[in-house]
């Protein structure tokens, strides 16, 4: 069922109706960081949310949550259809995140995932908005850096922290990285 979902999204992308990046735990696999996850996370431009809604509805999902930044879909009858979390960004942000995205084979389907630097920015934003996620997201960031040496300079990480994170996050990250 996971393959059916991602194939449906990829088909819409091939038809020019939708652009999406795989994020979350499944997206982190693209950067050699493998952790547990319980849902399918994608990132899209907010003006294409209707396309995702149409696909999800066609597959039997119902919309469970909706905010200006986020949609969540839940399948009421079949647990094999994992929950789908949809992160919404504006078109220019989507374009920026696309500029250095990488391709990744997911369930036999070619998808794109944000770069390490973009993932770090997204994680910093997430923990800034929800301090309860700090440990989880900082661990993800540290693992991304450790498993992708040379992909992002420490100075760039600091700049991302200064821009997107609450104070002192870079210091905590350095402790995690044993720097």
């Amino acid at each position: 069922m996971l393959q059916l979902v991602i194939q449906s999204l990829a088909s819409a992308q091939d038809e020019g109706k939708l652009r999406f990046h795989l994020i979350g735990g499944y997206g982190l696999d693209a950067h050699h960081y493998h952790r547990d996850t319980r849902d399918l996370d994608i990132l899209i431009a907010s003006d294409e949310a209707d396309v995702v809604h149409e696909i999800a509805s066609m597959l039997g999902y119902v919309q469970h949550d909706k905010t200006p930044a986020f949609l969540r879909y839940w399948h009421p009858t079949d647990a094999k259809f994992l929950p789908i979390d949809v992160m919404l960004v504006n078109s220019s942000t989507f374009a920026k995140l696309s500029s250095d995205s990488i391709t990744h084979s997911f369930q036999g389907v070619e998808v794109t995932c944000p770069s390490v630097a973009s993932f770090i920015a997204l994680k910093l934003h997430a923990l800034k908005n929800n301090p309860g996620r700090t440990r989880k997201d900082l661990n993800d960031i540290a693992a991304l850096i450790e498993k992708n040496p040379g992909s992002v300079a420490l100075e760039e990480v600091k700049a991302l922290c200064d821009r997107y994170a609450p104070p002192h996050i870079f210091d905590k990250l350095k402790v995690l990285l044993e720097l």
Partner: peptide, 12 residues
């Protein structure tokens, strides 16, 4: 399952 990101992420 909390609802994350009350504020949209914007690349500045």
């Amino acid at each position: 399952r909390e609802v994350p990101n009350p504020e949209p992420f914007v690349w500045a």
